[in-house]
């Protein structure tokens, strides 16, 4: 009796559900087509903007010689060398980088920086500072020019050295791994860039970088970092920091060219990388750093 009563309602329900299913399929198809279109547009947009990436979008559109007409990224594998024994802590590199790349003019955000390590005779702890330290900012008198204050002049110094730092452009970059949109990526020639037209500004990459090399640019609303001056190196120039270094502490070049300065630097020195345990396989190679440097 109960079954008889419920049979028509079951049929009605089935009809209703099948109509609902049909409607859902149609809607799904429309949404799917729309999404595919959006995806296509997004990919096209991403590709066109990645031609310049952070290094000035729209620099080139010629696919055959990407990203500039006279440059083939398949023929390059960039690397960076730092000879800490040569660095004098003049901070010209920091200022040049800020100017070249429109890095915010403050003492808190840098694409490159220099660290000073000082071991005092009567102190077993190392003293580390960088140009952003308030004492150094006071010495420079502004947040646009930088210098190291002579803060240890009355102390007996056992050992002291400078270490230039920058993005390590890792082979397995954790910043690229965590980026939810793929806005940050590694180019074929080994440079980690940010597509600032696609980045959503979540700052997950800033958290994930073990080296503190990234920051959030309030002006652009996206993640910012060293590009090894991609807009310069693809034109045959050196990165700004390398160009201005008066002592040759920064070495840059193409490792596919066995006679390039960086290839010779890596081959002829016992180099090391920072935080190798991260598994990131950094591509900035150091000479003359101490155990405290990380």
């Amino acid at each position: 009796m109960n079954d008889e009563k419920t049979k028509p309602s079951l049929d009605a329900r089935r009809t209703f559900l099948s109509k609902l299913g049909l409607a859902a399929t149609c809607t799904g198809a429309v949404v799917g087509l729309g999404a595919a279109g959006a995806l296509k547009t997004a990919i096209a947009k991403s590709e066109s903007s990645s031609s310049g990436g952070q290094a000035k979008p729209g620099a080139a559109a010629d696919r055959k010689s990407f990203p500039t007409p006279d440059y083939d990224w398949n023929k390059h594998e960039w690397a960076f060398g730092v000879d800490a024994t040569k660095c004098i802590g003049c901070l010209r590199c920091v200022e040049a980088c800020k100017r070249e790349n429109d890095v915010p003019a403050n003492a808190h955000q840098f694409r490159t920086w220099v660290e000073r390590y000082v071991y005092l005779a009567d102190d077993k702890h190392v003293h580390i500072d960088s140009q952003h330290d308030p004492v150094n900012i006071e010495a420079s008198g502004s947040e646009k020019t930088f210098r190291f204050a002579n803060r240890y002049k009355d102390k007996k110094v056992d050992k002291a050295f400078f270490v230039p730092k920058l993005c390590n452009h890792c082979t397995h970059p954790s910043c690229v791994q965590v980026c939810p949109t793929g806005a940050t990526y590694r180019t074929e020639d080994g440079v980690v860039l940010v597509d600032e037209t696609y980045c959503i500004g979540c700052r997950y990459c800033v958290q994930a970088c073990p080296y503190g090399a990234r920051f959030f640019n309030e002006e652009t609303g996206v993640a910012d970092k060293c590009t090894w001056c991609y807009h310069r190196i693809t034109k045959g120039l050196q990165p700004a920091c390398v160009e201005v270094c008066p002592v040759g502490a920064r070495i840059f070049g193409n490792t596919k060219d066995k006679q390039s300065p960086v290839s010779l630097f890596i081959r002829n020195s016992r180099v090391q990388v920072l935080k190798p345990e991260s598994g990131n396989a950094p591509n900035v190679f150091y000479v003359g750093i101490d155990k405290e440097v990380n």
């Binding site: 939810p180 949109t181 696609y198 959503i200 500004g201």
Partner: peptide, 28 residues
Amino acid sequence: PLLLHLGHPERAFNATITPHLTSAMAMF
């Protein structure tokens, strides 16, 4: 809270349209 935090909240759907599959955040 995520949208309020993003530098470009208007691009939030980029993570859904072109999810970067190695990112934990992309699946959100």
